[in-house]
Design a protein around this nucleic acid. Structure first.
Length: 575
DNA sequence: GCCGTTTTCGGCCCGACTGTTTTCAGTCG
């Protein structure tokens, strides 16, 4: 049992307790423990062996014994009991924005509504508005929420799927007779929401690999789905597909199964001219007297066979990449090595976990040249937003820290709230003192299009704003973007030279790859930031990078690939 | 449920916004 799986159990317990109307702080305790488990670097199983479970923040006597039970039996009886008492459907309802545990409980108690389907029916029949404290808006909101949930049905965010896929790959690789194991499918293309985890293995004896796969303890269901295929549902509810091929077939299969259907279709048009058809094993001759299959030894060779340069998986969506390949203008996509810094980072001065120094050291260890400390501004009180005095104090502390560091620079920044009227949360003279200002929306998400457009435009007109943070405001699978007209925002950003963020948090990935590509076309520069609230989340940068790659970004399109000198010149302050 | 204690229990995550109301409860960051 991994940390994340135990964290999920605690999270589910928290949800169910909340739905049952339990004490708020008890719920909070489970949520804190869940977050804590996902943050720590050590494996829970190791800590338990060493008797150090209680060292984990938020794990007391009670939760420790629950972890021990889970590690020992793979089950949590407390969770099972809760599940018996709270209908599972109520938990799904929590995903509807604006609908919280109290309302769900009320609807359940008064209308006996237990599932999303029943909830939808009740809303359509205008039954919800009859309940105290609810009205037509709540009904509309419920119906919209259900519509959103249906659109992402059975999908999980890349941030959940990728780590699980990597774990599976490393385990498959260690099986005897396995020559190679790789991720393919949507994950390899970097899609933000993933329906399946697709894994490909090269092995000499497929049956053995499939048998081991089927009996994996992390699956709640598994079955054989073909001679060389198996499918499973993981404990987290994600579908996992395994295909096993011979080592000779591997390159062709990896190429084939990593590409979207549209990509393969378009390639097939080219292959048809050469009288070949692309199949998972390679290129099948369609000439009358031949019946052989040409098997490429690498993906490069597969594209070479069609007279094309290599196309990275993130581009293989059939959205112009083949045309670009023919014109020999496939972009040189940004890589992790290009990133030289992170311009959106929180510390324990606001709602982060680590000190400025710890964040800087962690960034230095990653090989970065700079970071910007951008804690929350004063009106975000839940996140301990900084008062003007505290912010100025932080600037002084950073100044002192910089004197001690060589070859690394901490920029003093701020993530300033764009207030509901478009003014910023600090006066200009305070913003002027910062090296860099990230402006973000953290309130009034439901403003109508005209209002929020005006609001954000107004913020962008402020001369000190350099980056617009998480521009669309979406939370994957939980909250739709604000009613913001991003086309217009791109226009303004282009005119003002404002940088737009790709927020790498796997919950956000905002801008999306679609808008990142649009930004590039408009000549708008992107900042790929993590918005990290602790040192471990600096790793999230990879999700931002893969999103940037899907958005066709090259290193020159991304501000934080620039060396420190160039960045400082661009920022134009007194350094 | 955790934590930090003046070791046995009180404090912990608050304030803006929303939709429903005429004064507030629920939601969310």
């Amino acid at each position: 049992m991994t940390n994340i799986e135990i964290a999920w159990i605690f999270n589910e317990i928290a949800d169910l307790l909340e739905l049952a109307g339990e004490n708020f702080y008890k719920v909070l305790a489970y949520r804190k423990a869940s977050r804590s488990l996902q943050r720590i670097n050590a494996e829970v199983a190791d800590l338990q062996r060493e008797g150090r479970l209680s060292d984990v923040p938020g794990i007391g006597k009670n939760l420790r014994s629950k972890i021990e039970e889970i590690l020992k039996t793979g089950k949590c009886t407390y969770l099972e009991e809760l599940r018996r008492n709270v209908p599972q459907g109520m938990r799904y309802m929590l995903a509807i924005p604006g609908l919280g545990p109290s309302s769900i409980r009320l609807i359940y108690q008064k209308l006996s509504v237990e599932t999303l389907e029943e909830l939808e029916k009740a809303a359509k029949k205008k039954k919800i508005r009859e309940l105290p404290g609810m009205g037509p808006k709540t009904e509309t909101n419920i119906l919209e929420g259900i519509k959103m949930l249906k659109s992402i049905q059975d999908c999980v965010p890349l941030g959940v799927a990728l780590p699980l896929a990597e774990l599976m790959v490393s385990q498959l690789t260690s099986i005897q007779g396995v020559k190679r194991a790789e991720i393919c499918g949507e994950i390899r293309r970097g899609k933000e929401m993933v329906a399946d985890i697709d894994l490909l293995v090269a092995a000499t004896s497929p049956r053995d690999v499939i048998d081991i796969f089927l009996s994996h303890p992390r699956f709640k269901e598994s079955w054989v789905s073909g001679a060389f295929q198996a499918t499973a549902i993981s404990l987290l509810g994600v579908k996992v597909n395994l295909k096993v091929v011979s080592p000779e077939e591997f390159a062709a299969a990896w190429f084939y199964y990593s590409s979207s259907g549209r990509h393969i279709d378009k390639l097939n048009e080219i292959a048809a001219n050469q009288k070949y058809k692309i199949i998972s094993k390679g290129f099948k001759s369609e000439k009358e007297k031949e019946n052989g299959i040409i098997m490429p030894e690498s993906e490069e060779e597969a594209y070479g066979f069609l007279g094309l340069p290599y196309i990275p998986p993130e581009l293989r969506e059939g959205s112009g990449e083949i045309e670009a390949a023919i014109a020999n203008s496939i972009p040189k996509l940004i890589t992790a090595e290009n990133i030289r810094g992170d311009l959106h980072i929180h510390t324990n001065w606001s709602d982060g976990l680590n000190t400025i120094e710890e964040m800087a050291e962690a960034a230095l260890k990653r090989g970065y040249e700079y970071i910007a400390i951008t804690d929350h501004s004063r009106s975000l009180s839940v996140a301990d937003g900084l008062s003007v005095e505290k912010l100025i104090k932080q600037f002084e502390v950073i100044k002192e820290l910089n004197k001690k560091m060589s070859g690394f620079r901490i920029l003093s920044g701020i993530e300033v709230d764009i207030r509901t009227d478009g003014t910023l949360d600090y006066p200009d003279e305070v913003l002027a003192m910062a090296d860099i200002v990230v402006a973000s929306v953290h309130s009034g998400f439901k403003q109508d299009s005209a209002t929020i457009n005006l609001r954000v435009q107004r913020a962008l007109e402020n001369p000190y704003v350099r980056i617009l943070g998480h521009p669309s405001g979406r939370i994957l699978g939980r909250r739709d973007p604000y009613a913001l007209d991003l086309e217009q925002i791109l226009e303004t950003a282009s005119r003002k030279g404002t940088w737009l963020e790709i927020n790498s948090s796997p919950d956000r990935l905002d801008l999306s790859s679609y808008w990142a590509r649009k930004a590039k076309e408009k000549g708008v520069v992107i900042a790929i930031n993590t918005d990290a609230h602790d040192v471990s989340r600096l790793d999230d940068i990879r999700f931002g990078i893969i999103t940037g790659r899907r958005g066709w970004l090259e290193s020159e399109n991304v501000i934080n690939t620039w060396p420190l000198d160039k960045l400082l010149t661009e920022l134009g302050g007194m350094f």
